[in-house]
Design a binder for these strands. Structure first.
Lengths: 256, 256
DNA sequence: ATTAGTATTATAGTATGATTTATAGGCTGG
DNA sequence: CCAGCCTATAAATCATACTATAATACTAAT
């Protein structure tokens, strides 16, 4: 069983590996929802770790809402709506078992719900320092046309700066969601693959920044909405073959 | 120090108490962001638990993004934007240190961003069974005019049924956010306090349900938006109104 | 026969000490 | 002055023993 679990890139701590292993097995349905996990002893042997490391992994998973342990009754896999989907690890584990068009659709749907309005609030609340931060990230994107990795990093920084400027801590904590979306998108369809596409992407980002700079919430919101919509389309085009529930982004956020 | 930590209602496990204690101290700024927590030995003495229990608590907090441990350097309190604000415990710990108007404002702001659009998608995707579930919850609300606790429970069930029907797992996992908002709102201003208010609240919920029932995403979305706005006003949050005043939400959900 | 209470027992929870590993900071040699 | 090698320290891990809890089975009283 463990052989099928995708290896994490770098060596990590024991409990981290175990959490990763169990988490991924839950995502893949090998530990089905509602089922009871093997007991401590069996899992210890399975992963070749001590009780301490195993239990720490369990606590990590429990903290993310994946499992619940009760004395005598065992450890059960909780229902999906207990899972904290805004957790970076959970999203990562999801994506590691293969990029699913539906999952990407949900990801973009959430972005479409939150980011345009985050831009709107940022346009009203942003400080000078936050504007500078956005500008720095934007400049970094301009300069990273050649480096896919550098571009992704700068792109994420730009979006995070906006979230930061929104002033809402809930929005500020969804960086992992956006990061996952960006990273995955770029593996499918890089925005720096062609010069034309690069300029289009930059134009959109510039529009978002300008809207926030000019304290124009409506413009900023609309620009971000366009940006996300196109990003989603770029990804979904590559996935037409998975005809099953090809979730379109239906939500448009407009202005009066 | 520990005396100031609000006691949880019911007795819980040792590591749970420790996680709660440290978590709350972080929220209150007694363990400031960026600072290094006391070492294992000191914390063990402070909370009167073994290393095992302490470390499990640490892993719980680390899983929620509150802290990060590194060998030799110690355990540091991470920056706010690493915290997973959609975690039920984190919200709870926030609220336990006293209801903060700003925090409530942020809570309602997020609801205003997500729930109307969740209604819109639910209006398109909902199954018959999900409609029945919403109806059940709605009926329970009608019948719980006398019981504040029962009403809150039914109210939450109604909102969760909508999230469920949206089909998006990210939305499905924000039940804790809504739950916290509802519970806190009701301690401030109960919707069943007067007959008049009760009828108004029920009218709004009925409008949301009708919109979803009739597969009318625009109507459902708007009804939910109204509902949340009024709920925010009841707890005297001017925040939401002002920040979203410039950008109206108009969700159109079209089917191809 | 049904119910209420009690004993059993499997399993998670907790405690403790020993051991290993990682790294900041100092030390040595170039 | 720098690079690479020690060393001290605190976290990470292991191993084992013990405790608390609750599901199950069993017993006894009605």
């Amino acid at each position: 069983m463990l052989n099928d679990v995708q290896r994490p890139a770098r060596a990590r701590s024991a409990h981290d590996l175990v959490a990763h292993g169990i988490g991924q097995n839950i995502m893949q349905g090998r530990f089905p929802i509602g089922s009871t996990l093997p007991g401590d002893a069996e899992l210890m042997e399975l992963f070749g770790v001590s009780r301490t490391a195993l239990r720490e992994a369990m606590k990590t998973l429990a903290a993310k809402g994946l499992i619940e342990s009760k004395t005598k009754v065992g450890t059960k896999v909780l229902d999906r709506n207990n899972w904290n989907m805004f957790d970076a690890d959970i999203i990562e584990w999801h994506l590691e078992m293969g990029v699913d068009a539906r999952f990407l659709g949900w990801l973009f749907e959430i972005r479409q719900m939150l980011e345009p309005l985050a831009c709107a609030t940022a346009a009203v609340r942003r400080t000078e320092e936050q504007l500078k931060e956005m500008h720095r990230a934007l400049q970094a994107m301009y300069q990273c046309e050649s480096s896919r990795q550098g571009f992704t990093k700068a792109d994420l920084a730009f979006h995070q700066a906006i979230l930061e400027a929104s002033g809402n801590p809930f929005l500020q904590s969804i960086g992992s969601v956006i990061g996952a979306a960006l990273a995955t998108s770029f593996t499918i369809s890089s925005p720096v693959s062609s010069d034309e596409r690069f300029r289009e992407v930059m134009r959109q980002h510039q529009a978002v920044f300008d809207g926030i700079l000019q304290a124009n919430p409506a413009a900023a919101s609309e620009a971000m909405s366009d940006l996300i919509l196109q990003a989603a389309e770029r990804v979904q085009i590559k996935h037409v073959e998975s005809s099953l529930a090809n979730v379109q982004i239906h939500a448009f956020t407009g202005v009066e």
